[in-house]
């Protein structure tokens, strides 16, 4: 039962992604992209990543859509090219090859939801077991983000600041 709900959410995810890609009108495309982000947040909430789901719903579905819409209001909201030229031969060879290679690698990945996968047994049990003694925070994600990796999170604001400065410099009116 739980697995089938996940399959349904993944199908919705693929449908909205396909819509965002195939629709001609860029405005509808961007709004479909917002719903794609929202379904992505739902999938993440379903598989237990609630903090990531919050961030995706706020930053991905909210902020990214607003940024796209602001750009489209300032520029042309239509993809003016009515007929697309066919893709080149290299593209047609490389992409299926890449897809086959990626899917071939699926056999070596740990099974979905395997509690003994390498990612889950190496260091993460230590964080789960000791974070409450170390940081007094029941939410382990917050404990790691704001305590163990607090410098990383602090310097991340520099990245946000730099991108804000870059946007302001690019969009100022007089040169």
């Amino acid at each position: 039962m739980t697995f089938s709900v996940q399959i349904l959410l993944l199908l919705l995810l693929l449908t909205t992604a396909a819509g965002a890609i195939m629709v001609k009108d860029l405005m509808s495309s961007v709004l479909l992209l917002g719903s794609y982000s929202f379904f992505l947040a739902l999938v993440w909430a379903w598989i237990g990543a609630v903090d990531v789901a919050f961030v995706e719903a706020v930053v991905g579905a909210g902020l990214a859509t607003v940024l796209f819409l602001l750009t489209l209001f300032g520029t042309a909201p239509k993809d003016t090219r009515l007929r697309r030229p066919p893709p080149s031969l290299t593209t047609l060879i490389i992409f299926p090859l890449l897809g086959v290679l990626l899917l071939y690698a699926a056999k070596d990945l740990p099974a979905f939801g395997d509690p003994n996968s390498p990612a889950s047994v190496h260091i993460s049990p230590t964080y789960l077991e000791q974070s409450y003694q170390d940081t007094n925070t029941p939410n382990v994600v917050t404990a790691v983000l704001m305590d163990y990796r607090s410098l990383d999170t602090m310097i991340e604001t520099v990245v946000i600041f730099a991108s804000g400065i870059a946007c302001a410099l690019l969009l100022r009116r007089q040169v």
């Binding site: 903090d51 990214a64 940024l67 993460s124 946000i160 946007c167 690019l170």
Partner: peptide
């Protein structure tokens, strides 16, 4: 919890770079 933490950072930085691209 570790992939969650790392991807939280990646989402925010990704949207910041997207904003620069749109600008």
């Amino acid at each position: 919890p570790l992939p969650h933490v790392l991807t939280l950072t990646a989402i925010v930085v990704g949207v910041a770079t997207l904003g620069v691209g749109l600008a």
